[in-house]
Each structure stands twice: as structure tokens, then as C-alpha cells.
Design a protein around this nucleic acid. Structure first.
Lengths: 215, 215
DNA sequence: CGATAATATGAGCAATAACTCGCATTGCAT
DNA sequence: ATGCAATGCGAGTTATTGCTCATATTATCG
């Protein structure tokens, strides 16, 4: 446990290539150990050992265990958002229905990049202290999706764009996230397309307000 | 930390009223301390103190800190499912659209019973060890919803009932959960109905396959 | 009342793990 | 080459905390 609150704020900025390699090795090792041993058993000593780095060096670049985990989450988030952002670019030209299918597919792909790590980060990493405001899904996904909706405004009949973005992004994320974490069967090769199809339909129907067509 | 793996399995069963009171006080205190101090700072000693019970008594009924938290989660789950189950009963007679609205409203109500506790359990309670398989939303919600869908089978055009239940329950839970945790603004008195309305529409459109009406 | 079982107590043990610090090594610039 | 800064090292410190156990109190029953 904590000896006392860390008084110094180490985290030197690496200026030499050697130091950069050390930092990378530490982040990489943290991810590996988190997956292998779980959050509780992932001690800083063990992480340092796995990185082939001394515990002293670890604390030169990372002021706390939390900060290491933050780095891992940020990297994981970056990977996910790279895929999602690319999908937004692809979706831009396409008609709504097709575009949505691309976005849903990207969400699924993104969550499948490193499911084991995703699970540990989601289930075992307590959001307290430095991690309190770190989310597994970037906040800006809502904003980006909102912009996407704005581009299709004429096709749609939406009053509250923010709320619509909230509903869509939250649903898509939850469906892919929950499938990855709790329902691997749904993600089996033969069935992924079904999930993808259903999710797209869910969102498409909602956005087009197809309920206008009936009374 | 663990001295060694708890070798005995305490958890005597309380036979006298006095002991029952002790057990209740401990569960209640655990919830209070979790909310007040967070999971990490919720030590067994502190919980015992808050319950007005000695640490020794605590370990007579709960073999570990984890088991205390499990008890809190189970109680929280029970409260939530009581509300949801009641809604299923109410929804039985009503037409689909109305029934869905009731279920969504119940999900929101359920998540608002003790939002602070819900947040701690969701964000800070690591799912490892005894907590590995404890979910915040009962697994059987999927089954119950599936039965509900079966009753409305003739109105609907669904091939895979299981998948449909997964999509609906996961979406409803995520929307209410995320709103409670991250978007208190959406749950403001004037706006809850809007969320409720949008969520119902999302699910209703999906279930009725309103996309059949267009090509 | 007296005996036995149930319940309650809390000081202290044991283990762990986050973090420090003095010193060694390596790289860079002049 | 030489000096200085950057980087690396790891044994040890220290606070925390989950948990035990010997003992004391209270309830139940014949």
C-alpha cells in the first residue's frame, strides 16, 4: 500500500532514445501483466520486472501505479478511436444506412482489438483517484457522432441532436462492449454479421423515426 | 492485504435475533462506507467500526471483504429487480408500445434508487476473485424479457428471440445506466420523460421491424 | 441456578506492495 | 579525454490492512 502520498512528481520526460524505449517497455509490460495477473496482483515491482527495468527507473517516469494504468488506457483508447475515426471518414460519402453499418462494424472491430485487455480495464480497474475521469470510450465519440448526424440532418427528423447522439453512441458501444465481455458466442464468425445487422437496424429505425409511418 | 488465504470459512449462520441484527448492520455499513470512502479506503476495520461491531464479529459472518461487497451487490440487485419485475407484471396486459414504456420507466427508476452506491459498485468494485461473476444487472433479465417477447410474438416479426432480447435489454440498461452515471443532466426532472420516450421509441421501432414499411 | 452454546471483543500478527534514495552506469558535448 | 547530465539500479523503508485467536459477555434451556 501507500507508504505516504507520493510527494515528488517524477515522470521525467525522456529525451534520449534509450529512455523512450524504457517508457514504452513499461507501458507494454503493464498491459501484459494486467491481462496475465489482473489489476490487484499487478504490482509495480512485477511490472518493472516484466519490462526488464528496475523499480527505480519505473518511478522516474511514472509517479504511481495509477499513472501507468492511465497510460495503458490512453493507448487502448487511441487504438479504438483510430478505427472508429477511420470509419467516420469512410461513412461520410455513403448513404445513411450504409454509413451506419460501417460505424457499427468499426465499433465491433475496435472492441475486438485486445478483448482480454479491454475486459481487465473494464472490470477490474477501479475508477478512483487519477482514474476517476478516465472512460474506456472516448467522450468525443459523442461529439463526432453528433457532427455526423448534422450532415444528414435533412434526411432525418431529429429535434435534439445531443440526445440522439447519446442514444446512438451509448447503444452501439454497449452492444459491442457487452458482446465482447459477456457473450463471445454472439461474436462467433458466423454470427457477428447478425449482431452488426441488428444493431444497424436498431439505430437506423430510431434515426429515421420510422414510427412516423404508422400511427 | 491478505495475510494468507483465508483458511476457515467463517460465515456462521445467525440463529439469534441479535446476530441477524449484526449481519444487517454490517451490510448496511458496507454500503455506507463504500459510498463515503470508495472501495479502496473501505477497510474491514472501518466497516466494522461504522457498523458498531467489532472486527472479530465481522469475520464470524463474512469470510472476507469481498463477501461483504457481494452481499451489498446482491441486495442492490434485489432492489432493482423488484422494481423491474413489477413492471413486467404491469406490462403483461397492456399493448406493446405501452408495455415497453413501463419497462423503460422501471429501468430508470431502478437505477435511481441509490445512484451513489450504483456508481461505486459499477466503477470501483473490481470483478476479480469472488466478484468475478457478479453482474450489476441480473442475468435473468434477459430471460424474462425473452418471455415477454414470446407473448407478443404474433405482433412481431422476430427470427432470433435471444438476440432480440440481448439487443433490447442491453440497450435499455446501458442508456439508463450511462445516464445515471455520466449524464445527470439528462435525468433532470424536465428531461427524464424525453429520455424515456426516446428509449421506448428506439426499442419499439426495432421490435416492430418498421423498416419493412420502406424499402 | 448452572451448564453449554452462541455471540461479541479488539490487540496484534503477518504479509504485501507502493515508493525512496544513494549510488552506478551510460551518453553527449566540448 | 573529461566533465556533466541523463538514465538506470535495487535493497530497504513504512504504512496499511486483511485476518486470527484467546478471552469475555450474553442468551438459552433443563
Amino acid at each position: 500500500m501507500l507508504a505516504r502520498k507520493p510527494q515528488t512528481t517524477p515522470r521525467k520526460i525522456a529525451s534520449q532514445a534509450r529512455a523512450h524505449a524504457t517508457v514504452d517497455a513499461l507501458v507494454e509490460a503493464t498491459a501484459r501483466i494486467l491481462v496475465r495477473d489482473g489489476f490487484d496482483r499487478a504490482s509495480t515491482n512485477r511490472i518493472a520486472e516484466a519490462a526488464g527495468v528496475s523499480i527505480g527507473s519505473l518511478y522516474q517516469y511514472f509517479p504511481s501505479k495509477e499513472s501507468l494504468v492511465v497510460a495503458v488506457i490512453e493507448r487502448h483508447n487511441r487504438d479504438l478511436m483510430t478505427i472508429v475515426n477511420a470509419a467516420f471518414v469512410d461513412a461520410k460519402d455513403k448513404p445513411l444506412k450504409e454509413g451506419l453499418a460501417l460505424l457499427v462494424a468499426a465499433a465491433i472491430d475496435g472492441h475486438r482489438v485486445d478483448p482480454a485487455l479491454h475486459r481487465v480495464l473494464a472490470e477490474q480497474t477501479p475508477r478512483s483517484g487519477a482514474l476517476a475521469n478516465v472512460e474506456l470510450f472516448q467522450r468525443d465519440a459523442y461529439g463526432i457522432f453528433r457532427s455526423y448526424l448534422e450532415e444528414h440532418r435533412d434526411e432525418l427528423h431529429i429535434e435534439d441532436l445531443d440526445l440522439a447522439a447519446f442514444v446512438c453512441v451509448t447503444s452501439i458501444e454497449a452492444l459491442t462492449h457487452t458482446a465482447v465481455i459477456h457473450r463471445p458466442d454472439i461474436l462467433a464468425e458466423e454470427r457477428v454479421d447478425q449482431l452488426s445487422e441488428e444493431t444497424s437496424r436498431l439505430i437506423f429505425g430510431y434515426l429515421c423515426r420510422l414510427d412516423r409511418l404508422i400511427r
